[in-house]
Design a protein around this nucleic acid. Structure first.
Lengths: 132, 132
DNA sequence: CGGTATCCCGGCCGATACTG
DNA sequence: CAGTATCGGCCGGGATACCG
């Protein structure tokens, strides 16, 4: 297991530190972990998807938010947009190698959280019961 | 490496699916990956911290948001609050075993994003240059 | 199909003041 | 030190309409 010492060692020497208010990595982390960014990256992990396929997969996302999310992820170099000038148009979105690395770690987190939900729900009941 | 097939296989059979609008895991994931939740869990990974130590470590967080964040994480069973009834009061926050597992995966993601920032910034320049 | 443009509301969140 | 209470702005994001 990686220790925190290793994880945070020499942060002052590293170029990017997400814990600092001004660091650009904080913005990228928010694109990645944001409500729709996380689910979009997760959905694309298995392979390329078209716009409306993504919409169906990420339950509840609006056209506007999916569009914004994809633009942000494409700008950060995590998603590649492949538009075919046919009629009707066909646009495929897929992870870049970088995006794949991010999505992999993201899915590890998502999966772990999903697997912990029974514990989480039990903890909530205990917490709520203690103040009622 | 874990494949997406494995990650998403039989989602319909699993009790919790974050991609579904109504699943409670989506709410917990948002606590965990939210702007302040992620940084708070990351800060606590190395060990217990007091309220104002956390405030200093999570640069830019307000008292109110840190308080709200800690309450949410405590309710979800990820953070344990230890209050000593001394004067002046002393309150320590630390990760639960469950919170530790979450934070570990979160830090893997954060670290990867930080390590990718040069690529991300380069991708942004290319993206912006392409439409200017 | 694959988006963009516009309107607008709720709530996230920061600032400030106050308390035990 | 460790918070809670209250106010207010601003913007995330949903709804709707429109376009190539």
């Amino acid at each position: 297991m990686t220790t925190t010492q290793e994880l945070t060692a020499g942060l002052g020497d590293l170029p990017y530190n997400v814990f600092a208010r001004v660091c650009p990595s904080r913005g990228t982390l928010e694109h990645v972990t944001g409500r729709w960014g996380a689910l979009t990256l997760g959905a694309l992990y298995e392979g390329s998807l078209r716009f409306n396929e993504l919409r169906r997969r990420v339950d509840g996302v609006s056209e506007k938010m999916l569009s914004q999310t994809l633009h942000a992820l494409e700008r950060d170099g995590l998603v590649h947009r492949e538009a075919q000038p046919t009629n009707p148009p066909r646009v495929d979105y897929e992870l870049t190698p970088l995006g794949h690395g991010v999505a992999e770690r993201l899915l590890a987190l998502i999966h772990f959280v999903e697997g912990s939900m029974d514990d989480v729900l039990a903890a909530r009941e205990r917490y709520d019961a203690a103040r009622a």
